[in-house]
């Protein structure tokens, strides 16, 4: 399966990503946020594209061997069980799938904003650090140098 085939399996890929990082009250599923990154990585790197395609192929095969509803039509529990089987049978490909999904999800500006951070370059804006009292270093200073004299 080539990266182009990966693109052709977009619906399956979205279902897989949504299972890896499901939505909660504050965050959407990863299919909406990580998909573009995963596809971009598959297109930019032949090695990554091959691993991702292999992972999706294994998921598709495993789903075809199960109930007729396929991956997207299965329950969350069934989808997670299927993915755990693929994680065991294709560890390198599945590891790449999870890593690139996490990279895509947690670098997306929408995720960054929901985490309470400001998307985009830090500089020249910088960080706002609240002033804090310095620890009492008198005891350390009183001990004097502990390093070896040259």
């Amino acid at each position: 399966m080539t990266p182009e085939r990966l693109e052709a399996k977009r619906d399956l890929l979205i279902s897989v990503l949504d299972t890896l990082i499901p939505a909660d009250e504050e965050f959407p599923e990863s299919g909406a946020l990580a998909l573009d990154h995963v596809l971009a990585i598959a297109g930019a790197s032949a090695e990554a594209g091959s691993l991702l395609a292999r992972a999706l192929e294994a998921i598709e095969e495993a789903a075809a061997g199960g109930e007729a509803r396929g991956f997207a039509g299965s329950s969350v529990t069934q989808r997670e069980e299927l993915l755990r089987r693929v994680e065991r049978s294709h560890p390198a490909a599945f590891e790449a799938l999870v890593r690139h999904t996490y990279d895509g999800f947690y670098s997306h500006p929408a995720t960054i904003a929901r985490l309470g951070l400001e998307p985009g370059p830090v500089q020249p804006r910088g960080h706002r650090i609240e002033p804090a009292a310095l620890p009492d270093l008198a005891r350390v200073a009183a001990r004097g140098p502990i390093f070896r004299r040259a």
């Binding site: 990082i21 499901p22 997670e80 993915l83």
Partner: peptide
């Protein structure tokens, strides 16, 4: 790595 799936968030 943080686990994937329903435990992830």
């Amino acid at each position: 790595r943080v686990p994937w799936g329903r435990e992830h968030r």
